[in-house]
């Protein structure tokens, strides 16, 4: 930048032209981004307003872009008639538990890989194959195992599956964070008499906490979004939000239009929350591996 300024001082005419181009470029940049924002956020806007409309507004023409009298009755309907509260709570509980357990299980593994190169290149191959595998190849055998153990329709069952599905990605991210961690600090702690596990828990964890938060939030979202396992491995007490949404997709869609859109709004809330919380880490984290388990 300094060089550019110096040069523009020498050749003022060129600098002026440069500035015009630059201004135009900025304008186009923001215009382009604004267009992108409209495209990528438009559907959310439509769903939100639909969920707040009265039944008579769905089919109105010209369309009701913003309801004059927003009403929450579809949300009320969702929570009273369709046990929306139960589904929402289930999703929350399962996602939170999976998030915690994914972290707890992945951290030592990542440590083992980062410090001692445990497993060599196996991790990346495993990661690749796991990513290729359609869920349907796993679902029936897992179901059969679970049936034998009696943990279908149980938080534990889903939490275990989600934890495992998320381990490779979590480990991959955590290895990155741990490799950057200065060995000297860890050694100092161990010289002071810390065991390795305590050094991990009390010295390393607090320092890489922001990185762990990134891993945790991505895991939360990935779990929240999953639905095929959620249909097969759950029962009446453990159904999740995604299952509720798909139960609106056929048959009575027309009659429960408002409630269907309300359920979508609730279903995408965590994505918004996580995106805002992770603003600065998105590029670093999501770029490494994606959120779709």
């Amino acid at each position: 930048m300094a060089i550019a300024l110096e040069r523009s001082a020498v050749v003022p005419q060129r600098a002026k032209r440069h500035r015009i181009w630059r201004g135009l470029g900025d304008a186009l940049t923001y215009l382009g981004l604004a267009t992108a924002l409209v495209f990528f956020l438009g559907p959310f806007f439509w769903i939100l307003t639909t969920s707040l409309k009265g039944n008579e507004d769905f089919f109105a023409f010209p369309p009701v872009w913003i309801p004059a009298e927003p009403s929450l009755k579809h949300y009320v309907g969702l929570f009273t008639r369709s046990s929306g509260a139960r589904y929402f709570t289930n999703s929350m509980v399962i996602s939170t538990l999976s998030m915690i357990s994914a972290l707890v299980v992945s951290l030592p593994t990542a440590y083992s890989i980062a410090r001692w190169r445990f497993g060599g290149g196996l991790l990346s191959i495993f990661l690749l194959v796991l990513r290729m595998l359609p869920a349907i190849a796993l679902i029936i055998p897992i179901y059969i195992v679970y049936r034998t153990l009696g943990i279908t329709n149980n938080y534990l069952g889903l939490v275990v599956v989600y934890t495992v599905l998320y381990i490779p990605f979590a480990v991959w991210l955590l290895v990155g964070f741990l490799r950057d961690f200065p060995l000297e600090i860890e050694e100092a702690a161990m010289i002071d008499g810390c065991s390795r596990l305590r050094a991990l828990a009390q010295v390393i964890v607090p320092i890489i906490a922001p990185g762990m938060a990134v891993v945790a939030l991505f895991s939360f979202i990935a779990t929240w979004n999953e639905f095929l396992f959620a249909i097969v491995l759950t029962g009446i007490e453990t159904k999740t939000m995604m299952v509720l949404v798909t139960s609106f997709t056929s048959g009575g869609t027309d009659m429960f239009y408002g409630e269907a859109s309300a359920s979508v709004v609730l279903g995408v809330l965590p994505a918004f929350a996580v995106a805002f919380m992770l603003q600065r880490y998105l590029v670093k984290g999501l770029a490494l591996g994606g959120t779709k388990g």
Binding site: R147, V232, G235, I236, K239, V243, T246, S247
Partner: peptide
């Protein structure tokens, strides 16, 4: 009352039945 979305309904219920028990 449990609602299993229509599309997975038969497969899921048959899975349970075939295991010799049913919730």
């Amino acid at each position: 009352i449990e609602v299993i979305p229509g599309d997975a309904f038969v497969a899921k219920t048959l899975l349970e039945f075939n295991s010799g028990q049913s919730p």
